[in-house]
């Protein structure tokens, strides 16, 4: 593979690890990456969203995370991440490129930075990833008593795909209290234990969080497809 092509592939792999914070799905899988170009040590990425009106906050977070992921590659010296076809594209692109805060880019239109928004959806992602993991264990026949007594170390041997475990552990460090190998695998976000007898009811509640994100992701795919896959429209928008 010529060096440039392999760098494009590396850049795409780095982007694949970036998630839409609202959906907890990869921006690559969602089809948000329109173009990746490499010139020497510079990477240029164009990304697009399902509507002209998608949240500026989430768009900013994705742009920031994409830029950080690209700059994390050893050979990248410059990363130009550019949102296209969006009502706030100009301000987001300029602000993220300059390493500015959301507040300073949007002035009075933003009452603060994006920390609270990130936190709300990271917590939902934690619940969603936990629900998915527990459901997989249950589907494999593991009892609720066995599930709640698993340690984080035990998860390595659990009959579930390693990628689910890795994604869960990434956020288990943030939520649920101590996260050493010998600590309980499954805890509520505040660190409270989940008794085996209540696992089913608790799961019934948090499953909804994951399903909501999944349905939203599907709606995003539908809208993105309509926007970019050339369904007949009487005219092109100035943005498109």
């Amino acid at each position: 593979m010529p060096p440039n092509e392999s760098r494009v592939a590396e850049a795409r792999a780095a982007l694949a690890a970036v998630t839409d914070p609202e959906l907890d799905q990869s921006v690559v899988e969602l089809g948000f990456i329109a173009d990746v170009g490499v010139a020497g040590s510079c990477v240029a990425v164009a990304f697009r969203l399902p509507t002209f009106w998608c949240s500026a906050g989430f768009a900013w977070i994705m742009a920031e995370d994409m830029r950080a992921a690209l700059l994390g590659l050893a050979w990248v010296e410059e990363a130009d991440v550019r949102l296209v076809d969006h009502f706030a594209a100009g301000r987001i692109n300029a602000g993220v490129a300059a390493g500015r805060g959301f507040r300073s880019a949007f002035g009075d239109e933003a009452a603060g930075d994006l920390a609270a928004l990130r936190e709300t959806f990271r917590r939902k992602a934690f619940l969603g990833r936990m629900a998915a993991l527990i459901e997989a264990l249950r589907a494999d026949g593991m009892s609720d008593a066995a599930i709640v007594s698993l340690t984080l170390g035990d998860l390595a041997k659990a009959p579930v795909a390693a990628v689910f475990v890795a994604r869960y552990r990434e956020l288990r460090v943030v939520y649920g209290g101590p996260a050493g190998e010998g600590d309980a695998a499954f805890r509520k976000p505040d660190g409270a234990a989940i008794p085996a007898g209540t696992l089913g009811a608790w799961l019934r509640d948090v499953r909804m969080t994951r399903r909501s994100a999944e349905a939203n992701g599907e709606m995003c795919r539908v809208l993105l497809k309509g926007r970019y896959d050339g369904l007949v429209r009487g005219e092109r928008s100035p943005a498109g």
């Binding site: 509507t51 002209f52 009502f87 539908v222 309509g226």
Partner: peptide
């Protein structure tokens, strides 16, 4: 242009679903 981008979201939902 906002008038166009607004109806386009509806249109994409209409077509997709």
């Amino acid at each position: 242009r906002y008038g166009l981008t607004f109806i386009e979201v509806f249109w994409n939902s209409h077509n997709g679903l």
